[in-house]
Amino acid sequence: MVATSQATLAMHMSDGLVNAPTAVGFGLVAIVGLAIATQRARVDLDDRTAPMAGLVTAFVFAVQMINFPILPGASGHLLGGALVAILVGPWVGSLCIAIVLVVQAFLFADGGLTALGTNIVNMALVGVFAGHAVATAMRPLARRGRTGLLATAFVAALVNTVVAAAAFVLEYAIGGAGGASLATVAGLMIGLHLLIGIGEGLITAATVGAVAAARPDLVHLLRGRATPLEVRGAGEPA
């Protein structure tokens, strides 16, 4: 078929890149994942962190607009998974990225509507939790000082970018519409996203570093585990 290409500002998966069953299947995964995230996010949201999470979401939307060059003729942009996981935690963070993707898809026609499930799985679930896993593993280093925190943010972001790209490769392997061999897609996706991951790492480290310098109490990773046993309301028995 003749495809009129979407403008170069499109940043996420368009409709039609995977077949309908695959799109529906990942749509269901996205719904279940976000439902769990909504439940688990509550414990990390209070009068201070809720506005922070709203602003982090708006910030990710803004920075995702900034495509930076990686190779002649190719660019990359922030995905934001590690950034949100470090600043507001993985459950709230998943919701942050999902909201960005929903606004982009419906308002800006960036990322297809039937592709929303795959885009949410790749960036809001897989990317966020890949970044969260690395950041959590490196937390002792992150707590030791500024250099450790910046290194943690950089590595977590680099990994989140590459793993999110790998999730697309998986979707293409399951139900790709065709047009390129799986080996080609895998090699190009991983290779390009290693480069993009360096940019993602630098942006994430700079942002986390700036927040930590001004308000270390608003960096979820430095606060440590959520405190699910905290009294939920003054009237409730502990």
Partner: peptide, 30 residues
Amino acid sequence: FLVIALLVAGGLSYFASSDPDGLDSVTLSG
């Protein structure tokens, strides 16, 4: 924080690369 987000989206966006991103580069390959 909000002012920075507005400046990035409202101003820095004019300087963003218009080359296809990583995913688009792959889907356009060939």
